[in-house]
């Protein structure tokens, strides 16, 4: 069963929460660098401004692809919070990212083209880990349904430590943070101009930004599942997790894409294989 109410709540609240997280992120980043930093609401100002800008395009189809990207990111998050099938969520997410990539391709600029290729490399790098994480949840709880996984009464982190670490390793890439921000990244990082988003401007760029907020909340939800048996611990764990990400972002330099791909695959292979084999043959809980 899925819960439509949660889905609607996600669609409404996730941008607010995601934007706030982004704002806190920027503030903390600034503090770590000894700066004052922008107001916490800065991400909302940014998107508000982007919506006020002129609507310009490089190619007609690019806006379509970005809109579809936003729709499917929101869709997969809503499906997740509604308690739907985890595999379907993963696939919808893949679809969303491919749409973003296609949007970048359609703009035909060499910068967004390289960004698109790198985004695909990223996709290829983290996809196995995400699929295997879904498999891990299934093996541990006997269900792909997010609702049932979340209702699982025992701590999943205890049976899925390998999956957890692997997913955390990948999270850096999903959040577009150093050292794995190879396709595009947040403000004040210099790029091969601006990666996938080079040719997006105004409201189109705003949509990319909002999609990212949705995705942040969805990712945190994914990690929530590991701690779902105790909401208090879950909130604390997620806070620590995100703080760690901010710290890593500020403490590391971007790696080359080859290294990113290789290391993520190695981590995925070793950790998830070990974890899954252990689960399948020696039973979880």
């Amino acid at each position: 069963m899925i819960n439509v109410l949660f889905a609607v709540a996600f669609l409404v609240l996730a941008p607010i929460l995601g934007g706030l997280i982004a704002g806190i992120d920027r503030k903390l980043t600034a503090r770590m660098q000894g700066r004052v930093g922008p107001p916490v609401l800065q991400p909302f100002y940014d998107v508000g401004k982007l919506l006020e800008k002129e609507h310009v395009i490089v190619s007609v189809s690019q806006n379509f692809f970005v809109l579809a990207y936003l729709v499917f990111i929101a869709f997969s998050g809503a499906l997740f919070f509604a308690g739907g099938d985890l595999l379907l969520v993963v696939f919808a997410l893949t679809l969303a990212h491919v749409l973003l990539v296609l949007g970048a391709y359609s703009a035909t600029s060499p910068y967004s083209f390289i960004g698109a290729e790198r985004e695909l490399v990223q996709l290829m790098a983290y996809e196995p880990m995400v699929i295997l994480a879904a498999a891990g949840f299934y093996l541990a709880t006997g269900s792909f349904s997010v609702m049932e996984i979340a209702a699982f009464p025992r701590p999943l982190i205890a049976v899925l430590p390998g999956i957890f670490i692997g997913l955390f390793y990948v999270l850096t890439m999903k959040l577009r943070k150093s050292p794995f921000d190879i396709a595009t990244s947040h403000h004040a990082h210099q790029e091969i101009v601006k990666g996938v988003t080079t040719e997006f401007s105004g409201s189109t760029l705003g949509m990319v930004e909002v999609a990212h907020w949705y995705e942040t909340v969805f990712l945190l939800g994914l990690f929530w599942l590991f701690f779902a048996w105790s909401p208090v611990i879950a909130v604390i764990a997620l806070a620590i997790l995100y703080l760690a990400e901010i710290f890593i972002d500020n403490a590391t330099a971007r790696v080359r894409w080859g290294f990113a791909l290789r290391s993520i695959w190695a981590v995925t292979l070793v950790l998830s294989a070990a974890n899954l084999v252990w689960l399948q043959y020696f039973g979880g809980l």
Binding site: G37, P38, H187, Q190, S201
Partner: peptide, 23 residues
């Protein structure tokens, strides 16, 4: 201006390096 001493990001100013994003 971007360094901690002046920190223009306080005002939401960002150096984008990309004309399509810039104001």
């Amino acid at each position: 201006c971007l360094t901690p001493l002046y920190d223009v990001e306080r005002f939401g100013i960002i150096n984008t390096g990309n004309p399509k994003h810039a104001d």
